[in-house]
Simulated scan of single mutants.
Amino acid sequence: MSTVLEAPERDAVEHDRTAFNLAVWDKIVANPEFAAMAYRFETDEHGQIIMSPPPAPSHGNQQSKISRLLWSVPAQGEVVSECPISTRKGVKAADVAWCSLEIWKESKGRSCLLRAPEICVEVLSPSNTRSEIHEKKELYFDAGAKEVWLCAESGQMNFFSPSGSLERSEICPEFPKKV
């Protein structure tokens, strides 16, 4: 599969990763055929679409619990589910994210966030591989995330900073270790 961009528009933005990701994502979001599909979308570094089936209801339940708890973060910010983030390897969608008002405002009117929110959360599914989750974690950190949280199917939370594993979140220390 090739990128959703045609040669002239691809050539105009290919030298700028963020502009390239935004151009690809804008086309995907604007396509009514994609909007009608029940799939989740991300892209790779070449602008190719990666589709995956919708997750199980338990996955969405974990996302909802995490979202509700994140609204209690003391600092002002926004909680976003299925949050599209421009990374060096395409647009990746964090299951849940918390971002400061600064990041939220800089991405206003955009189809995806220009940099990663401070907290990116992945709710793990049986189909996730360790290498896939490790890569997403690294991509979020490369894009500016301060913490990446992983939620196991059991609800067990694991917290990470760019330097490694954390006992608990430093941004939201009251967040429970299990949801």
Rank of each mutant, 00 (worst) to 15 (best):
M1P: 10
M1D: 08
T3H: 11
V4A: 09
V4S: 11
L5M: 09
A7L: 15
R10F: 03
R10P: 09
R10V: 06
D11M: 06
E14N: 11
E14C: 13
H15L: 07
H15N: 14
R17M: 08
A19I: 03
L22F: 11
A23E: 08
D26L: 07
K27L: 12
K27P: 04
K27V: 06
I28N: 11
I28Y: 04
I28A: 08
E33A: 11
F34E: 10
A35E: 03
A36E: 13
M37R: 08
Y39V: 10
F41T: 08
D44P: 07
Q48W: 08
Q48L: 07
I49A: 09
I49F: 01
I50Y: 00
I50F: 13
S52M: 14
S52A: 01
S52W: 03
S52N: 10
P53V: 01
P53I: 08
P55L: 04
A56E: 04
P57S: 06
P57L: 02
P57H: 00
P57K: 04
S58N: 13
N61K: 12
N61Q: 07
Q62Y: 13
Q63P: 09
Q63M: 15
K65L: 10
I66N: 05
I66D: 03
I66L: 15
R68E: 10
L69E: 02
S72V: 04
V73P: 03
G77W: 02
E78M: 13
E78H: 04
V80L: 12
V80N: 14
S81V: 15
S81C: 14
E82D: 15
I85T: 09
S86V: 00
S86A: 02
T87V: 07
T87W: 03
T87R: 09
K89W: 05
V96M: 00
V96W: 02
A97C: 00
W98V: 03
C99L: 05
C99Q: 07
S100I: 02
L101H: 04
L101M: 15
E102S: 06
I103D: 15
W104D: 10
W104L: 00
K105I: 06
G109V: 05
G109P: 04
R110V: 10
R110Q: 13
S111M: 03
C112H: 04
L114M: 13
L114T: 06
R115Q: 06
A116P: 02
P117G: 12
I119A: 03
E122D: 12
V123Q: 02
V123C: 07
S125W: 07
S125R: 03
P126W: 07
P126C: 02
P126M: 13
S131M: 07
S131D: 11
S131N: 10
H134G: 15
H134S: 14
E135Q: 09
K137A: 11
K137W: 04
E138Q: 13
E138L: 09
E138N: 15
L139Q: 04
G144H: 02
A145K: 01
A145L: 14
K146A: 01
K146F: 08
L150Q: 14
L150C: 10
C151K: 14
A152R: 12
E153H: 06
E153M: 05
S154P: 06
G155E: 01
G155L: 00
Q156V: 07
M157I: 11
N158Y: 11
F160L: 10
S161M: 03
G164I: 09
S165N: 13
R168Q: 10
E170C: 13
E174F: 10
E174V: 14
F175M: 10
V179S: 00
